[in-house]
Write a protein that binds this DNA or RNA. Structure first.
Lengths: 212, 212
DNA sequence: TCAAAAGTGTTGAAGATACACCCATGG
DNA sequence: CCATGGGTGTATCTTCAACACTTTTGA
């Protein structure tokens, strides 16, 4: 009945330039000094795990009100050289347009394409891979895809998100049919006028299925 | 950076008399004295989470070498009246024929139908529901169903397992077609001669997909 | 001879995939 | 005028759901 150190680590995804990226923080302290690691930190005595994850996201990434979901807990006794640390991993999704607020010091926090990560501290690479796999799986039967978009978006935007996550091109007509007939988006009367040709804007049609 | 108590709790499923059951332990100590709770206990300083879960299953349920998978971590600050305890929940599956060894004292450990649980200690009811949901979901795209069966089984046995988990009857012909054409079982040359009519025995066809 | 579980095909509906062209606009 | 992304329909295939009767055996 020993007390253990408990942390949360968060895999924060976004899509930039059509590619899925993960936010990493350069460590300033030992161990793994100067290595990149996931944002995260210790769980306080009186906060829930999810609250801890949200707080760390706020403090380390300057991000607020994101979609946040528990991923998996990692507790190998050797995973942290300082001693026994159990981490509860979360993943989170933000749209590219949602600005990272103050608190995220550009010199230490940076986005990396999920396919080209630097060497990470601890077992964080494994955690990122686990999270990537999870969102790929959930893409089909939930609406995680939307969480990476701003409130209004075009079907083209949504398709780019799906393509970035699964890592391959999708057929435009099939994609649009699938999305529209599931009735998980609702068309607006507004049109985006930037871009080559005006495009209809959409919005989620209310809260549907975040299953875990 | 405070140290927290970390436990594992295990939802151990089996099928008895065609109904999905969960193993519960009657608590002898406070809090929740005399209430039923999941088998579980504190994670030791130098064992992994999964090792802790396996150890608790051995110590409290007398069960060895079962299918064991992490479920979810629960860390509400108020979930344990004694103080801050984070639990990493697992679920496990055993076949009805696998005997519960010594160590499981019949007076404290008992099987309950998952649909008729007594009032449980802590947030254990929520944990059981979470686990039940998980195996229901995994039934379709993994072979969790097999873990509840002995090494050789008939398709009728397997169908009963599926029916117990989803809680409703399935069409025999559709079920058999689905199973056999996925090639996840391989037919043996042996036939079970007990029962009304001889039935062909099957076995898993090697390790396929335990995805998490 | 009856009760219980084993075994076996077909049809229709729904969903998924493959595939190509014209349009509106900004540069 | 051309490059870019927006928008649209059909044919095919696969997958899933519904559905009923005969056989073997032990009691």
């Amino acid at each position: 009945m020993s007390r253990l150190l408990v942390t949360v680590d968060i895999v924060l995804f976004t899509i930039r330039e059509r590619v899925l990226h993960v936010l990493l923080i350069r460590r300033l302290a030992r161990p793994f000094e100067n290595r990149y690691a996931l944002p995260g930190g210790f769980v306080l005595e009186d906060e829930s795990l999810e609250a801890a994850a949200a707080r760390e996201l706020r403090e380390e990434a300057g991000v607020e009100k994101v979609y946040l979901e528990q991923l998996y807990s990692f507790g190998d006794p050797k995973r942290d050289p300082r001693g026994r640390v159990v981490t509860v991993a979360y993943y989170a999704l933000v749209s590219e347009t949602q600005p990272l607020r103050a608190g995220s010091d550009a010199s230490v926090a940076a986005w990396f394409p999920v396919a080209q990560l630097p060497t990470l501290a601890f077992d964080h690479r494994k955690i990122v891979e686990c999270a990537h796999q999870r969102i790929r799986n959930k893409l089909d039967y939930t609406n995680v895809g939307f969480e990476l978009l701003p409130e209004m978006f075009t079907l083209g935007d949504l398709q780019l998100v799906h393509e970035a996550i699964v890592g391959q091109a999708l057929d435009k007509r099939n994609f649009r049919r699938k999305i529209t007939q599931k009735a998980i988006v609702k068309p607006l009367k507004e049109w985006r006028k930037t871009g080559r040709k005006p495009a209809q804007l959409f919005r989620f049609s209310d809260e549907v299925g975040h299953i875990h």
